[in-house]
Design a protein around this nucleic acid. Structure first.
Lengths: 234, 234
DNA sequence: TTCGGGTTTTGACTTAAGTCAAAGGTAAAC
DNA sequence: GTTTACCTTTGACTTAAGTCAAAACCCGAA
């Protein structure tokens, strides 16, 4: 049931049953396959999205085709809420665009589109959801801050090491003992996320492996010396 | 009068006179000179700031001392609000830290410190201010998105050209005819803001001048060929 | 099982931008 | 006016990371 799902989405967690019902009515479900575009940054803004299943990348492209990934969105997370609040108070404008591109990077990526106008009404009448929204934005601002810090103050090796450690931390919270992660994205995408290119990522992983900090087998990365990997990350 | 000033601060623009009065009571005014630290990212979070006069840089430092500027904060703007909303709902924690460093970069930089605990109470009782807060965050997210895009997808020349054009746009909104801007920060700081170093910035400005797109005289930059400068920026 | 697409790795080379060191400038301080 | 401290520029050199091209790998579809 959709409304059961929505309850577990952070920004909707304060809503009453009837509000959830209302939300369910306005939401439109869509399904995408790997490589499908969800929206371009040139398109008029319709509303924001909630991921049900799969994985979505939010990215920008340079004039000559280089790509940089800003966020990777997994189930229960929202994306493209920012334009909702541009000129809040004023009338909602048709001229709003999406702030970046979004592409599904797994098959069967299911999302809900929450149309902007209707959601805005719901928002006006419910201050709890507004607080959640601010918290969500705060978290994202932290993330972007961190992202910029990594990109500007660290070299590729540090970024790769840092990424592996962060993934490991996430995984360990959920799972068992040994330090082992599995990438859920392609190395091309990982490179674009870390602000580099596949060749350099490949060489960097190899270097860390040669220095006996990690062991790479396809999408599986085992950390063999976490101490030194942590040193390499700062 | 402080409350007259506060009215012109975007996030407080919806407050009633008595709420403004309340805010005035809890705010603490501080004055800094050029080079003074307002806070370090290692300090416990006390609250957020509103700039009254002067200029503040929000920045991160790498282990080996390189600096990157995330934001430049001018009068009527706020900074360091993000930690207010970490774990909102839960009790406010003493363990929160500032997300980055802040330093005054002009003499007589006057700011108001709005203590977190008291402001949170005010926030609970007023949903209008919450909406403003989300809008403010949305704007900042846009800014950081743009910043990342510049840093990752453009070379230094494009970033410098883009910066000059953006400044020019700001200036032209207020002023008169010809395309001329005046830097309000040192070139060292500008370099740190554009994700490069002073030497490279200097050479880049010189290059753009040699190519007859701009004319640099100390802190004054005149745009002599805006068409070509725009081409150089993308 | 082979084909054909995309993905990943490797090697050789280039280059944008950083480092280091020194010299000019500028402006406030003495 | 001279000193001092910082800011800015210039020159010579280094290097991390990108480009280009090709090979190897991997995997699903025919």
């Amino acid at each position: 049931m959709i409304s059961d799902f929505l309850k577990k989405v952070y920004i909707f967690s304060g809503l009453s049953d009837e509000e959830l019902e209302r939300l369910t009515k306005i939401a439109r479900q869509k399904t995408f396959n790997k490589g499908d575009i969800i929206f371009f940054d040139t398109e008029p803004y319709l509303g924001f999205y909630v991921t049900i299943t799969g994985l979505t990348k939010i990215y920008k492209i340079s004039k000559d085709g280089r790509e940089h990934i800003l966020h990777l969105i997994s189930p229960f997370n929202t994306f493209a809420e920012v334009p909702l609040f541009e000129n809040f108070g004023e009338e909602f404008e048709d001229s709003f665009r999406y702030p970046a591109n979004a592409m599904a990077i797994e098959d069967d990526t299911r999302v809900l589109l929450i149309p902007a106008r209707q959601f805005r009404e719901l928002l006006e009448s419910n201050s709890k959801i507004c607080i959640k929204m601010v918290s969500g934005f705060a978290k994202r601002l932290r993330h972007l801050n961190h992202h910029i810090e990594e990109l500007t103050l660290k070299d590729v090796t540090k970024r790769v090491a840092g990424f592996i450690l962060a993934e490991n931390k996430k995984a360990n919270q959920l799972q068992n003992g040994l330090h082992k992660i599995t990438l859920n994205i392609s190395k091309n995408d990982l490179a674009a996320y870390l602000g580099t290119i596949p060749e350099t990522l490949s060489r960097t992983l190899k270097k860390l492996q040669d220095e006996a900090m990690i062991n790479v087998e396809g999408k599986n990365i085992e950390i063999t010396d976490i101490e030194r990997l942590m040193d390499a990350a700062v």
